[in-house]
């Protein structure tokens, strides 16, 4: 059976998702994703007319917080404890922008 997704599509998805795939992984992904997409494509036959989407199920509306500073009960500096690279209080990352 032919694959629904091309290799190029797999590579494009990987790029968007910030994943590197080996050639072998690309082959596997192509096969597996194609079969999964084929499986979920049976939805195309479902009649939904103009039904609303359900991206939530609770029916809740306007759940709001008062504008008061919150003490979350831990030391803010703890947040930095998992940061692999830092300089002072800054989080350090490889250079991101080439400004000409």
């Amino acid at each position: 059976m032919a694959n629904t997704l091309s290799r190029d599509e797999i590579l494009k998805l990987a790029k968007l998702s910030r994943l590197i795939l080996s050639d072998k992984e690309v082959d596997e992904m192509q096969k597996e994703l194609s079969s999964i997409i084929d499986f979920v494509s049976k939805l195309s036959e479902a009649k939904v007319d103009n039904l609303e989407v359900s991206d939530q199920v609770t029916g809740l509306e306007s759940v709001l917080r008062e504008d008061n500073p919150t003490d979350y009960g831990y030391d803010i500096t703890e947040l930095m404890s998992n940061v692999p690279y830092s300089e002072g209080d800054y989080i350090k990352v490889p250079k991101m922008l080439s400004e000409s």
């Binding site: 306007s62 709001l64 917080r65 504008d67 919150t70 803010i76 947040l79 930095m80 209080d89």
Partner: peptide, 26 residues
């Protein structure tokens, strides 16, 4: 100017952190 001090697990995007909308912003 206190770098990374006006933040919390939500702003930091820690696993399991959830947003809660501020009424005043609305």
């Amino acid at each position: 100017n206190t770098v990374n001090h006006q933040t919390n697990h939500i702003d930091f995007g820690l696993p399991g952190a959830l947003p809660f909308v501020n009424r005043e912003a609305i």
